[in-house]
Structure formats: structure tokens, C-alpha cells
Design a protein around this nucleic acid. Sequence first.
DNA 1: GTCCTTGCAAATAGTTTGCAAGCCG
DNA 2: CGGCTTGCAAACTATTTGCAAGGAC
Lengths: 129, 129
Amino acid sequence: MALKYSRQRESIKKYLATTKEHPTADMVYNNIRKQYPNISLGTVYRNLNLLVDQGDIIKFTTGDGSDRFDSKTNKHYHFVCNKCSNVSDLFMEHDFIDLINKSAEENFNGEIQGHDILFYGLCKDCQES
Amino acid sequence: MALKYSRQRESIKKYLATTKEHPTADMVYNNIRKQYPNISLGTVYRNLNLLVDQGDIIKFTTGDGSDRFDSKTNKHYHFVCNKCSNVSDLFMEHDFIDLINKSAEENFNGEIQGHDILFYGLCKDCQES
DNA sequence: GTCCTTGCAAATAGTTTGCAAGCCG
DNA sequence: CGGCTTGCAAACTATTTGCAAGGAC
């Protein structure tokens, strides 16, 4: 529980806080390597999982095989473009999020505690081209 | 495109049509092996992907590392129990499904074509124990 | 006979882990 | 110093693929 400071972890945290892509572990690795060429992929994975455990970041998947990481920890959804595969954030009213849970509970024999949604379609850029 | 008959594929199809668990490839493999002890995991994967391509079954993930397969191809959601990890189906009104897409589109700069939802909570059995 | 399908094994992708050395407090 | 953290490499899990033999039509 008592995490010690490490510049590698700080660097990962800072990168996630500033990027808008929702990077995979490998993307994080390649980015941090610019500053710390000796960092290892294992260290990246270890720190990403530590940050997830602490609730500093979240981990999710788009079903493409690798996990993705996001420093925005407030409740929101994700969108994947069917054409360029880029991942974006999609925020919705908390009231509507609750409504989805409530509606699900009406159709389900058990207790709904939450949900994740992955939207797909065409992002603005691909729509225009 | 022209698929030839194979008893292995038929067996996989039949098993998926009758099971209510949402099996991983490995679970399918272990089940089919009772009837065809020599079937290989590669054959199971190949056939599952063929069936997905044909639209006979769907593939989805709960984020636990392995893909799951479902012979119910009509639009519906999935639920994972936080305690026993079992996966169940969760059907909702098509009107509400459309409403979710519409609401998302209001909050997003791009075209929403669809979505998947993974609900989580406690299933009936775990609620009672 | 043609060519799709299979079993087997090797290869690949993503992630985790054991270990000795390094760094924080 | 003690113990968390790192780099490296090996191990693991899930899935895919090359190939020669087998089966469908």
C-alpha cells in the first residue's frame, strides 16, 4: 500500500494525464521510452496496474486484444471509430446513466450495480472524409 | 464462402445452441472433446471464427482475458456477476436501445452506429446466499 | 479429383513474474 | 539499512497459423 516515489511511475502518470488517445500498455511504453530509454515493458505494466489498483486511472478494453488506460476516472463511456479505430470519450448525464441501470434491473433477476458501454460508429474526422 | 460440412463444426454449433453459459473457446473445446476426443483447439478456434463471420454466433468479451461466444444473435446485453463471475443474458426493449444511441449522439461529435453494454452486479443465486 | 477441413505443433500477441541490482525514505 | 522498484529475461495465457493428411461433394 505504501508506494514509494519512482520517476518512471510519475512519468507514466503525467503522460496519461496529458494524452487524449487512450493508450495501450505498449503505446505508453513507447512514449515513456523517449524520456527513459531503459524503462522496461514489465515496469510499465506493473505501474499501470498499481495506478489502476489505487484508482488513479482506469483500465478498459475495446475487444481488440489489448487493454487501454484512461486517467479520466469520473464515470463516462468510450467510443471506437469503425474506420480509424481511434477511441474517444463520451460523457452522458448521470441521470441517464442511472436510468440505464434502473431499466436493466426491471429486465433482470438480480442486482445491477453498474455497467460499461462501448459505442461504435464514425468519428467526426472519418465522417468528413 | 462455400463452407463444407464438418461434424466438428456441427457439434460446436449444436453445443452453443443448447448451453446457457457463455463459453470461452477453451470451454467449448473441453465440451466437444467428450464426443470427439481428437478435436484440436485450433479447429475449435477456426470454427468459432467461421461461425462469427457467417453471423451464426456472436463473440464478445467481459474483459477477463478470453473471448466468449453466444448463439443468441438477436440484439441483447450481457451481465457478469461480481461474485461468481457467471455471465447471463439481459434483454431490453428495442426502443430503449435506440434511445441510448440517440442520447449518445446528442453528446458526441460523430455518428453513433451502435453499442454494447456489459452490466455487472449480483446474480439471483449470489444475492440469496 | 478438387479443395475445404482437420490435427498437430510451432508461432504470435499481450501480460505477468522471478530475480538480483538499484533507489527511496 | 529495509524494503519497494527496476531492468531483464523467462514464463504464461489466449489465439492464430503453416503444413501434410483426411473428408466432403
